[in-house]
């Protein structure tokens, strides 16, 4: 047996010889009192706001985080539950994405003509 082994055994024996604690004579009575108190709470326990606060806190925190991180443009998005028939108009095909479409020197007549043409002149 090495010295380490002897030391291990010494510590183990010392711990094993630790005096047992003195348990109060009322220990069992207190356990039963707590069990009875919990049983009597019953529905009051269900309505215990402290218990529910603790239980729901993680969910509330998650909702708050999602709300904070939710992108702003998603709020205005609407979705229709059923497909709606759409009428394609000139406005639908008019895509003023090109800078040239917003030329200041383009006459009003030219713009109107472009819109009425249904986007055929749109580049």
């Amino acid at each position: 047996m090495t010295e380490d082994d002897r030391d291990q055994d010494l510590v183990a024996a010392t711990l094993a010889s630790a005096p047992p604690p003195e348990v109060s004579p009322a220990f069992l009575a207190r356990v039963n009192a707590r069990i009875d108190a919990d049983d009597q709470n019953g529905w009051f326990g269900v309505l215990d706001f402290r218990a529910w606060t603790l239980r729901l806190a993680p969910i509330a925190a998650a909702i708050a985080i999602v709300a904070l991180l939710w992108p702003d443009n998603a709020i205005s998005r609407t979705s229709s539950p059923t497909p709606v028939a759409t009428v394609t108009t000139a406005a639908d095909t008019f895509t003023p994405s090109l800078e040239d479409d917003w030329q200041q020197d383009v006459s009003g007549n030219a713009l109107l003509e472009a819109a009425l043409d249904g986007g055929s002149n749109v580049r």
Binding site: A18, P20, P21, F27, R30
Partner: peptide, 23 residues
């Protein structure tokens, strides 16, 4: 009860009431 109170005492190492924890 004695074993559980002893366990609580050892694990809590002076922090808190081991009998309360054992109950």
């Amino acid at each position: 009860q004695v074993a559980i109170v002893a366990l609580a005492r050892a694990l809590m190492s002076g922090r808190g009431d081991p009998e309360d924890a054992a109950q």
